[in-house]
């Protein structure tokens, strides 16, 4: 297979460098984010950046298999976020109250 990409010699490293910088910024928020939702948001953003990086890797390595990894990773981004949300509950009494208001 071949990739039809104009200026691939500088576009792909530049895009990957931008993604690495973005990942470093989100990782800083993940490490110092004061509350739980901040960290979950950072994990979500980091997984989205991972999807982008894997898709770019498919173009760089000329490997179409990486796109399957991107599909699975974008599914995992959603499922991971959903799995984190019950952890924000304050206590058992509030969770009972929350069940009524769902």
């Amino acid at each position: 297979m071949e990739a039809h990409l104009a200026g691939a010699a500088w576009v792909l490293p530049l895009a990957m460098a931008l993604l690495v910088i973005a990942g470093a910024l989100v990782l800083a928020r993940l490490l110092l984010g004061p509350t739980g939702p901040d960290r979950v948001v950072a994990i979500d953003a980091l997984t989205l950046l991972g999807v982008s990086a894997v898709a770019l890797g498919a173009v760089i390595a000329r490997e179409r298999v990486f796109l399957d990894v991107a599909v699975v990773l974008s599914l995992l981004a959603f499922l991971g976020t959903v799995a984190f949300t019950p952890l924000f509950r304050r206590g058992p009494e509030d969770s009972v109250e929350d069940e009524e208001t769902v």
Binding site: L5, V11, L12, L14, A15, M16, L18, L19, I21, A22, G23, L25, V26, A28, R29, V41, A42, A45, L48, L49, S52, L56, V59
Partner: peptide, 16 residues
């Protein structure tokens, strides 16, 4: 690809 990388960087800047 370049626009997507730029938007990702702006979003990460907003997260921080």
């Amino acid at each position: 690809i370049l626009a997507g990388a730029l938007f990702s960087l702006v979003g990460a800047l907003g997260v921080l």
